[in-house]
Design a protein around this nucleic acid. Structure first.
Lengths: 186, 186
DNA sequence: ACGTTTCTATACCGACTGGTACGAATATCG
DNA sequence: CGATATTCGTACCAGTCGGTATAGAAACGT
C-alpha cells in the first residue's frame, strides 16, 4: 500500500464526510494499514489532514485557479465559475477546502495555517480577476475591488456548501447566477 | 440554581462557541451543578440542546419573525433584516440556530428535528413576506417566490455566519446589501 | 541456510465523551 | 425534634479519541 494511495483514501473520506468526523482509526481501517504505518508516514493527524488538503488542492482546487486566470473576460469567467460550483461532479459532496475552513478551529495548527494560506491565495486570485475586469472596463460599478472579492468568494463558497448538503444543482445554479448578477448589471 | 438559569448558561455557551464543542461536563461546571441534576432535568444531551435551542428561539430568533411579519413593505423590511444581521449585538457571535443547522449531523434526533422544523417555519415566513411584496407590486422581477425565498434565507444565514467568524459588521452590511439588491432592482 | 534488519499488527496508554449508581447532606413534613 | 424524602456530589461505567511500545513476521544480504 503506497503512501499516495493512503492519502487518496484519507482525502476522499474527509471530502465525502467531514474532516472532524473521520478518525485516524477509521482511515487506517479504510486504507487497510496499521496506525504505526500511518504515523510513520505522516507524523500526526495534523500532518495527515494537511497532506490530504494539499493533495486535494493539486487534484481539484487547481481547476478553479485555471478558470480565474483564464483571461476569458468577466461574463465568460463568471459563467465558468457558476458551472464549476453548480454542476461539476467533483463538487457533488462539497469542497474539502471549504469544509475545513468552516471547521477551522477543529484542525491542527499546520492544517489550519495551510487553510488560511490557501484562503489568501484564493482571495488574491479573485481580486486579480476583478481588477482585470475593471481595467478592461467590463465592470464599471461603484463597488470596490475589496468588497467585490470577498463577496464573490463567499458566494462561490455558499454554492459549493449547498452542494454538500444535497441541494439540487439547478436550484444552486439559479441562486448563484442571481447573486453574481450584481457584477454584470449597471 | 434554577433550571432556566442552567438553560441560560447552556444556551450562551452553545451560542458563543459551537454546540459540538461544548460538553455536558463543561456546562455542569459553568452552571455550578452536578451531572445527575442536569440529567434529571433534561434527560439527555439531546434534551438539553433542544431546550437551549427552544430558549434561543424565544429570546432571540423571535425578533426576526417580528421583522418579517411587520408589514412594512419590501424596502423597509429588507433594510431591517440587513440591520439585524449586520449590526444587532445579539448576532455578534453568530446565531445558535444557524450553527446547529450547519452541524446538523452532529446533533441528537430531537434537536435535529427541531432545527428542521424551525428551518421550515423560517422559510415559510420568508415566503409569505416575498409573496406579500409581490402582491403589492413592489417586486415585479421574474424571480420565483420559491427561489427568492431560499436565496433570501441563505444570504441572511451567510451574513450572520460571517458575524460569528469575526468579520467586520460594516463589511458584512455592504455585502448583504449587495446580495439583497437583486430584490429591489428592475 | 542463517543472522540481521526493517516493517507490521496488536494491544495498550492517558484523556476525554455521554451517562449512571450510590452514599452523604439537606430540606421538608408530621 | 425526629423521620422521611429528595437532591447533591463523587466516583465510576463503557466507549472513543490521538498516539505509541513491543513482539512477531517478512524481507534482505551474505
Amino acid at each position: 500500500m503506497n503512501a499516495d494511495q493512503v492519502l487518496d483514501v484519507a482525502m476522499k473520506a474527509y471530502w465525502h464526510s467531514d474532516p472532524a468526523d473521520v478518525s485516524v482509526n477509521a482511515i487506517c481501517q479504510m486504507a487497510g494499514i496499521s496506525k504505526p504505518s500511518l504515523y510513520r508516514e505522516f507524523g500526526s493527524e495534523d500532518g495527515l489532514t494537511r497532506a490530504a488538503l494539499d493533495r486535494y488542492a493539486d487534484q481539484v482546487l487547481a481547476e478553479m485557479f485555471v478558470i480565474l486566470h483564464g483571461g476569458k473576460g468577466l461574463h465568460a469567467t463568471l459563467a465558468a465559475l457558476i458551472d464549476f460550483a453548480s454542476d461539476d461532479p467533483r463538487m457533488e459532496t462539497g469542497c474539502l477546502f471549504y469544509k475545513m475552513r468552516a471547521g477551522k478551529h477543529r484542525l491542527g495548527p499546520d492544517t489550519r495555517a495551510r487553510v488560511e494560506e490557501m484562503d489568501a491565495v484564493a482571495q488574491a486570485a479573485y481580486a486579480a480577476f476583478l481588477q482585470t475586469a475593471r481595467d478592461a472596463g467590463e465592470w464599471p460599478g461603484g463597488l470596490s475591488i475589496e468588497v467585490g472579492t470577498k463577496y464573490l468568494g463567499e458566494q462561490v463558497a455558499l454554492a459549493i456548501t449547498m452542494r454538500a448538503s444535497g441541494e439540487e444543482p439547478a436550484r444552486i445554479r439559479e441562486m448563484l447566477t442571481l447573486a453574481l448578477s450584481v457584477f454584470t448589471r449597471p
